[in-house]
Structure formats: C-alpha cells, structure tokens
Design a protein around this nucleic acid. Structure first.
Length: 478
RNA sequence: CGGGGCGUAGCGCAGUUGGCAGCGCACCGCGUUUGGGACGCGGGGGUCGGCGGUUCAAGUCCGCCCGCCCCGACCA
C-alpha cells in the first residue's frame, strides 16, 4: 500500500493534488501556477474536445485561430472588461531585445481581438451571423492556483459569435449553454445546474452570464462552463457595425462561451473515490484494460496470445489497452489501473483459458465486489452494455449526492449551517450588498438562478428579509 | 500580499554536539515469482535551492536572496 492516497474525507484537497500527480494527468511546471498536462491528461482533454467540437459543428460553428498577443490598448476599450481583466494580465514589454512601443497582453480571453477582427469582416446583414470557435490557451495571472482548477495558463475553447438581433444572440447564448449541459450529462456523467449568474458574478463585459454549476465530492460548487450574452458592449467598443436591409448602420450583438481544462477537475472531483480516478466511460482515454495472469513461461505465451486476440476483437469498438508489462504482478496492475480510473478491466488467466471466460471488473465498484466472470463469447457486447451501465450509474450516483447535499434552509442560521457542507437553495432580494454580506459571513457565493427554478414570489430574502426577487443556489465554490 | 510548511538521489524522507552524505521506494542486471500492491543477490545515481560569512572543517552555525506547496484576500 505504498502508493495509497489520503482519503477524501480526511483531506479532500490533498487527495485531489496527489491524485492528479499520481495518475499522471498533470505535473507542476517550473513556473509557479503553471502545469504540464501529461499524455494521459491530454488524452482525456482530447476526448472532451472531440465531444464538444462535434456539437459545435452540428450547431453551425467553424473553428479558427486568433493570436496570443493583444495590444494593451484593446483592453481599455470596454470599461467593465478592463476592470475585470487588467489585474490579471501578463504583459510582454520587450521583443527582439528592444522595448516595445506598445506593450502586448498575453490573451486572458479573446473578445477584444476577435471584436477588432469582426469589425473588419462584418459589413452587411448578409455577413451575419458569424459563428466562430477557437481552441487555444489563455493566461490569467491568478494569485492562488490549483492543478486544472485554476492555473496561470489553461487550455479551453472560446466561441465568439455576432448576430443581427438581440434575440438571435440571446438564443445562441442559450443554445450553447444547452450544448454544455448536454455534454456534461451525456459525456462526462456530471450532473449540472444550468442557470444565470447574478450581476456581481457575471463575466466582465457581459450583459448576462449563464453557467453550468456542478457539485464536487466535497460539496463545493464548480462553475464548469459559461455562456455570455454580451449585448452590444463589444460591438460598440470595437465598432462592429453592419448595414441592415434598410441601409441603416447597426451594431451587432455578440456572445461568447467557454469551457476549459478545469472540466477535468470537475470529472476528478465528481466521480473520484479513495482508490483514485473514476473516469466516465465515454471520455476515458482507456475504456478497457486487459490484465493477463500467468505463472510459467509457457502459460505466459498462451495467456498473452489469448489476451491479444481479445484486445484485437475489442479494438474496433473501444479504446483498449493490453497491460503486458512483465515486471509487475497482477495485483499491482489492478491497483494501478484503478488509480487511473479505467472504467472496465478484463482479467484473463489460465483458468479462463480452460473455461472460455474472462473476469470483468467495473471501476465504479472497486475491489472484488465489482468483479464477475463472463464468457469470452460475446464479450464486446457485454462490455458495451457495461460501459453504458457505468455511465448511467455514475451520473445517478453524482445526482443523488448533489440532492442529498442540497438544502432549503428556513432562516439565515440554518443557511449558515447548511452551506458548510452543501448547497443552499434560497430566496434572495437581488441586492448585491446583501449578496456581499452573505459571502463575508459564510464564504458562500451565489452560484446561479436555475433556469428551471422555482418562483420567489411572496418569499423573503434569506438574509435581509426584504421581498425576494429570485430563488437561487448559494455555495462555497472553487 | 498576510499566515503556515518545506527545499538533501527520480519520489518520500533521516542526518545527533560542525568531522567520509544516508535510508525506503523507484531505476538497471541476473534468478525465482505472478488470480488484489512479490522476493533474493548484485549495481548505478548527489551543485545538500543560491550567494556570502564564521571555522582547520558547514547539509548542520550566521546573514541575505530565490523557489515551491498549503490556508486566506482575487478569479474560469
């Protein structure tokens, strides 16, 4: 048990850090707050990327790439945007050995440079809508960092669209929120609450921000994806104008939406257990690992041959790995693959050769409990069903966890109590000052006003007692 | 930036009153093992975070600096 992780209940933060390192998802880079995404972590990101990219294309978007360096002056054009982002900009002041005439910001997000380009490209109502997404990296000089959840540099996609009308832009904003919700639930098995951010929690420069909020294994909330209706703020800042059908000059309406490598953190903290990662089957880099078991050299040859035959038979349907490392015992490999979160493990040994079976172990039920013996005949179909079953039970388990830790406190005393270990769903007056007091007293922030929430009609603010405007979720958050 | 912890082999650490730089794991070789974290024997590997000082002698004492991690304020 030399590689044992701390348990989640004893130290969740430490469990998380060690798990990321030991499962070889990422490692600390030489620069504070930066991480190296290792091949296993990147493979997971690639699967996230593929699943999202497919959805973006299906909803009419195309990919492009905008530059990493942005003239500093661009950030001064939108008032809220500059206030929001200036403190965390990394700035390039020198190039080619000389001081630059104008410093360049390393992009923290690309609304400004894309806005600048859209102003060039958009002239007519016929040019609209513009539906572009970019996969890339951004830099934000955060004070306090954590692997995947908040690093100085992170990878993400950012969609930027321009529309003729507010209605169309709003519709786009909501459509992409739906895409994220669908992705979270149906690919990552992560239950999320889609909703609207309050004024104080919205994106710097947005009219309205939407979010998907997920509950982590320690009951804290994580903003797992965002979609912003930017109104005409950036259009006016960057002069993105077009002539409408009546030959009148109009500003466009824009949106932006993003999901980052932070989502990997969401997956880890939603599904992981004390033995390590539990990866959702549809995103797992390795869906099935085959562990051969043998004693003598003769057995080894026989078992490996059968194991490889099984690998080939499964390879067309699943991402499969045969663990033929000869210097490790099966017991070690079982633990190793459980740490790495592989959803299904196939064990094949001499006894199976004789009987035409394999042992099948499911990661969501670790140890001997999740192990069954099944015929080799029809194995692919058995595994397909098992992966599907694992996906659904992971989702249901996480959903049940969230429900069990979501409360509707009667008064503020109870509110303070429940947000120490869960979410509070409570009425609120809508006053940012009241929101700030709640945060100061409890560390809980407003997460979102759920799209499918209850009316706050006739209810009183959980904090100040004034008439409530919304019923929303409060939680301590990452 | 405030509080805490730490910097010695790839990782985790020990190093007493200043006196040959060590242990466990990992790694390499050989052999035996292999159905829930195997074992024996033999090996390789060091700018003790950096700079300066005290001393015959510094991982150890003194000063300065740097870096990382954790907890807070800020944030996807």
């Amino acid at each position: 048990m030399s590689n044992a992780l701390p348990s989640r209940s004893e130290n969740f933060a430490e469990w998380y850090n060690q798990l990321v390192l030991k499962a070889e998802l990422a490692d600390y880079a030489p620069v504070r707050g930066c991480m190296v995404v290792r091949p296993y972590g990147w493979a997971l990101w690639e699967n996230i990327k593929d699943a999202l990219d497919k959805r973006f294309k299906e909803t009419g978007h195309v990919n492009a790439a905008f530059p990493l360096l942005i003239p500093m002056s661009f950030f001064e054009k939108e008032k809220e945007h500059v206030e929001g982002f200036s403190p965390e900009l990394a700035v390039v002041t020198h190039g080619g050995g000389e001081a630059l005439a104008e410093p360049l910001a390393v992009r923290p997000t690309s609304e400004t440079i894309i806005g600048y380009m859209y102003a060039k490209w958009i002239k007519s109502w016929r040019d609209l809508p513009v539906l572009i997404n970019q996969w890339g990296n951004v830099v934000r000089w955060e004070l306090r960092t954590k692997l995947f959840l908040r690093t100085l540099e992170f990878y993400w996609q950012e969609g930027h669209t321009a529309h003729a009308t507010a209605e169309e832009a709003e519709e786009e904003t909501r459509r992409m929120l739906d895409v994220y919700t669908d992705f979270a639930i149906n690919e990552a098995a992560v239950p999320v609450v889609p909703g609207v951010k309050t004024e104080s929690e919205k994106f710097a420069g947005a009219v309205r921000s939407y979010t998907i909020e997920a509950m982590m294994g320690d009951t804290k909330a994580l903003q797992a994806g965002t979609s912003h209706f930017l109104g005409q703020n950036f259009a006016k800042a960057f002069n993105i104008q077009y002539l409408d059908k009546n030959n009148e000059l109009q500003y466009v309406w824009t949106t932006s939406w993003g999901l980052s490598t932070r989502f990997i953190g969401a997956i880890i903290m939603t599904h992981g257990d004390d033995k390590g990662l539990v990866l959702p089957p549809r995103l797992a880099p390795i869906q099935v690992v085959i562990v051969p078991i043998y004693k003598s050299d003769a057995q080894r040859a026989e078992v490996l041959e059968a194991a490889d035959r099984i690998r080939r038979a499964l390879a067309s349907r699943f991402r499969v790995k045969l663990d033929d490392r000869d210097n490790l015992t099966p017991g070690y490999k079982f633990n190793d693959w459980e740490l790495r979160g592989v959803p299904v493990r196939v064990e094949i040994g001499p006894r199976d050769l004789a009987k035409g079976t394999v042992a099948l172990a499911r990661r969501d039920k670790p140890g001997r409990e999740g192990k069954t013996f099944v015929p080799q005949e029809g194995l692919a179909e058995t595994i397909a069903q098992l992966l599907d079953d694992i996906h659904h039970s992971l989702y249901q388990r996480a959903l049940a966890f969230r429900k069990a830790h979501t409360h509707e406190p009667k008064g503020f005393d109870e509110f303070k109590e429940v947000v120490q270990n869960g979410w509070a769903y409570a009425p609120w007056c809508g006053d940012p000052e009241c929101e700030a007091h709640i945060k100061a007293e409890t560390k809980a922030t407003t997460r979102c006003i759920p799209l499918e929430g209850e009316s706050a009609e006739g209810q009183k603010c959980i904090y100040c007692g004034k008439p409530a405007k919304h019923k929303l979720y409060f939680a301590r958050a990452y």
